[in-house]
């Protein structure tokens, strides 16, 4: 936990307001959104760990999945951050360039750890 995400996840409020799903009121979606929200901190942790290890492929794959899914579960704002990050990741020639997106990865991980239904 080199960047201290663990602290954020255990106490999301201290790093920003909770992020709610736009579909929180949709009964069709409730169960799915709940499941997605339950899984999201775990995904954020994987993303953060991959980033710390400099595993560019894994970072790109996890970011791609977030960019595809977040919007659909009512977290459009997170989806956009993930999409921008994904674009930059795909243009990278080497893992060394990962350093240039540290802030965006931080932001994405932070947002993922603040989601609530």
């Amino acid at each position: 936990m080199a960047f201290g995400w663990g602290v954020q996840m255990s106490n999301p409020e201290s790093f920003g307001p909770p992020i709610r799903s736009e579909f929180a009121g949709d009964p069709d979606m409730l169960e799915l959104v709940e499941e997605f929200v339950r899984e999201l901190p775990g995904r954020a942790a994987s993303l953060s760990a991959s980033y710390d290890q400099g595993e560019i492929e894994s970072v790109t794959r996890l970011t791609h999945q977030l960019s595809g899914a977040c919007g659909g579960y009512g977290f459009g704002e997170i989806g956009e951050v993930a999409r921008d990050l994904e674009c930059r990741l795909k243009k990278m020639g080497s893992a060394a360039e990962l350093l240039t997106v540290r802030e965006q990865v931080d932001e994405l991980v932070s947002m993922c750890s603040r989601v609530v239904v």
Binding site: D28, M29, L32, E35, F36, Q65, G68, A69, G72, Y73
Partner: peptide, 17 residues
């Protein structure tokens, strides 16, 4: 056809009716 399982679950719910 999608590599993200989330999308499958999502479409399942969205197309249920």
């Amino acid at each position: 056809i999608d590599d993200a399982e989330d999308v499958h679950r999502l479409l399942g719910a969205r197309l249920k009716q």
